[in-house]
């Protein structure tokens, strides 16, 4: 198994002089609890560690979480709804994450609901952000209702996160269909929480099983990792200092998004050491 994901870079050189034309990457799944927020926080942080200017946007208005996972909750003053409704400037709503040079969070409002922002406004917000950032990652809420539509509308790239089980795959299929009907062409799959041993025992779907149904290019396979839970609770994404399998996988996804060719290997049940030492099966 060796899938080479395509270059998804827009080819813009990183220099402070020319205005940036950032790419909007929406992280979505249909089903809840598959790891969208964790992925957004980690891949966003990893992209910033690679030297990119990154903003992560919490699209889950009313049930915000991204600030918690990134440990920025206590620093929220203004949020995306304040900006959309004209109570602050965009700069004021952005929270700088000091763990990387250029990493910002645009938090969601906790006291409102998904109807507080519409897709048109979301496109406008992202058009503003594009001028300042190379990568705009939107953490979509679960479901296919307005919150999802808001997150999808401005997307250049759609990352669909799934767990290797049938209901997640079914929901992803629906989401991919909806994204396609909105004219989205760059749709990539992240298979999250893979336990190679259980795939081997056929308790979990394999990469081939998933590809057979979704036929969507895979941009990352993230193994189940105990480090994630405690990292989320601490508010420190695992990529900040982790060397575990999930941190490695998130970093690989970030490198692929920034245009690097990183071979993708299906985790083997014995293969962690192989992976760690760079041997690709």
């Amino acid at each position: 198994m060796n899938i080479m994901p395509p270059l998804v870079s827009n080819g813009h050189a990183m220099n402070g002089q020319t205005p940036l034309e950032g790419r909007v990457i929406t992280v979505t799944s249909g089903k809840g609890g598959v790891g969208k927020t964790t992925l957004t926080a980690n891949v966003g942080t990893a992209l910033a560690q690679l030297g990119h200017k990154v903003v992560v946007v919490d699209g889950d208005i009313g049930l915000r979480n991204l600030d918690l996972v990134m440990g920025l909750e206590h620093r929220i003053v203004y949020d995306i709804v304040d900006y959309v409704e004209g109570r602050c400037r965009l700069r004021q709503a952005l929270i700088r994450d000091k763990r990387a040079a250029e990493l910002f969070l645009l938090p969601a409002a906790q006291t409102r609901d998904k109807t507080a922002v519409n897709p048109q406004q979301m496109i406008q917000v992202c058009d503003e952000l594009r001028k300042e950032f190379e990568f705009i990652l939107i953490d979509s809420p679960a479901g296919i209702e307005q919150g999802f539509q808001n997150a999808l509308a401005p997307a250049d790239v759609v990352l669909v996160v799934i767990n290797p089980e049938v209901s997640s795959v079914r929901d992803a299929d629906r989401v991919i269909g909806l994204a396609e009907s909105q004219g989205k062409t760059q749709i990539y799959l992240v298979i999250n929480r893979v336990v190679p041993m259980r795939v081997k025992k056929q308790e979990m779907l394999s990469v081939d099983d998933i590809t057979e149904v979704l036929s969507t290019e895979i941009i990352g396979i993230v193994p189940e990792d105990e480090a994630i839970l405690s990292a989320s609770n601490r508010g420190t994404p695992v990529v900040c200092n982790g060397k575990g399998p999930a941190a490695l996988a998130y970093r690989d996804i970030a490198r692929r998004l920034s245009g690097e060719q990183v071979p993708l290997a299906e985790p083997q049940s014995l293969g962690w050491w192989q992976r760690l030492f760079g041997k690709v099966s």
Partner: peptide, 8 residues
């Protein structure tokens, strides 16, 4: 000529 996905 395409895949017909869930919900379509």
């Amino acid at each position: 000529r395409r895949r017909i996905r869930s919900g379509q």
